[in-house]
Amino acid sequence: MSPVFSHGSLRLYLLSLLEESPRHGYELIQALTDRFGGTYSPSAGTIYPRLAKLEEEGLVTKTAEGRKTVYAITDAGRAELEARRPELDAIEEEVTDSVRRLADEVRAGVDDAMRTLRAELASAARQAKRNASRVDPRQQAREAGRDVRAAGAAAVREAEAALNEFRQQLRTDLRSEAARGTLPESVVPLLKSELDRVQRAVVEAIGRR
């Protein structure tokens, strides 16, 4: 990625941010990230040495607030900013140009990545097609057989569940009617007849005549 600040510009820009309000290091990093629309985010190793230099020169002070160190501009720092206001205006123009340049670089990078992804997907599709044409027919038959057996096992489990549910519900109904003395004598012959009919129909359906 192209350089963002020319030599000495970041130091002056940090002073301008502290002129707006005291901030701790992370807030300065976040403020710079926001100014660049997220296309540039300075590291702590870039920011803190410059803050230490500004403090040595008496242009900023630092105070501890809990675990955070807050930096504030001094009167000497304001005087330097005022004396170098034209340079600061030029830096603002540099920032605008840098944002535009970085955005172009990011856009170009995304375009390249998308082209690469499309090429890789097309290559993967071609490879999958070639692999499919090389499948052993015997392997396909074995896989098909496994699929049929798996479907059959699933059907048996579903049938057993249906039978168990029917049995439990019917047992509950029969016992309830018997306890009230309202179970007709014709129910049992009817049940046997219907079960025999259902069995014949199922056997016929699966071809076991």
Rank of each mutant, 00 (worst) to 15 (best):
Gly66Val: 02
Arg67Cys: 05
Lys68Leu: 15
Thr69Ile: 09
Thr69Gln: 09
Val70Thr: 03
Tyr71Gly: 02
Ala72Lys: 05
Ala72Pro: 06
Ala72Met: 06
Ile73Val: 07
Thr74Ile: 03
Gly77Val: 02
Gly77Met: 03
Glu80Leu: 15
Leu81Tyr: 01
Leu81Asp: 02
Glu82Trp: 02
Glu82Asp: 13
Glu82Ser: 15
Glu82Phe: 05
Glu82Lys: 14
Glu82His: 10
Ala83Ile: 01
Arg84Tyr: 01
Arg85Leu: 13
Pro86Gly: 05
Leu88Asp: 02
Leu88Phe: 06
Leu88Ser: 05
Asp89Met: 13
Asp89Asn: 13
Asp89Arg: 12
Asp89Phe: 10
Ala90Arg: 05
Ile91Asp: 03
Ile91Phe: 07
Glu93Phe: 03
Ser98Ala: 15
Arg100Val: 13
Arg101Asn: 08
Leu102Tyr: 01
Ala103Thr: 11
Ala103Phe: 07
Asp104Glu: 14
Asp104Pro: 03
Asp104Ser: 13
Val106Ile: 12
Gly109Tyr: 02
Asp111Gly: 07
Asp111Tyr: 08
Asp111Leu: 15
Asp112Ala: 15
Ala113Arg: 12
Thr116Tyr: 10
Ala119Trp: 00
Leu121Thr: 04
Leu121Val: 12
Ser123Ala: 15
Ala124His: 02
Ala125Ile: 02
Ala125Asp: 10
Arg126Lys: 09
Ala128Gly: 13
Arg130Gly: 10
Arg130Thr: 06
Asn131Trp: 00
Ala132Phe: 04
Ser133Gly: 09
Arg134Pro: 00
Arg138Lys: 12
Arg138Gly: 14
Arg138Pro: 01
Gln139Met: 11
Gln140Phe: 04
Gln140Asp: 02
Gln140Cys: 02
Ala141Asp: 07
Arg142Met: 15
Arg142Pro: 01
Arg142Asp: 12
Gly145Glu: 11
Gly145Tyr: 06
Arg146Cys: 05
Asp147Pro: 04
Val148Gly: 00
Arg149Thr: 03
Ala150Val: 07
Ala150Phe: 08
Gly152Gln: 06
Ala154Met: 11
Ala155Phe: 05
Ala155Thr: 06
Val156Pro: 05
Val156Glu: 11
Glu158Cys: 11
Glu158Ser: 15
Ala159Leu: 14
Ala161Arg: 13
Ala161Trp: 00
Ala161Thr: 09
Ala162Ser: 12
Asn164Thr: 11
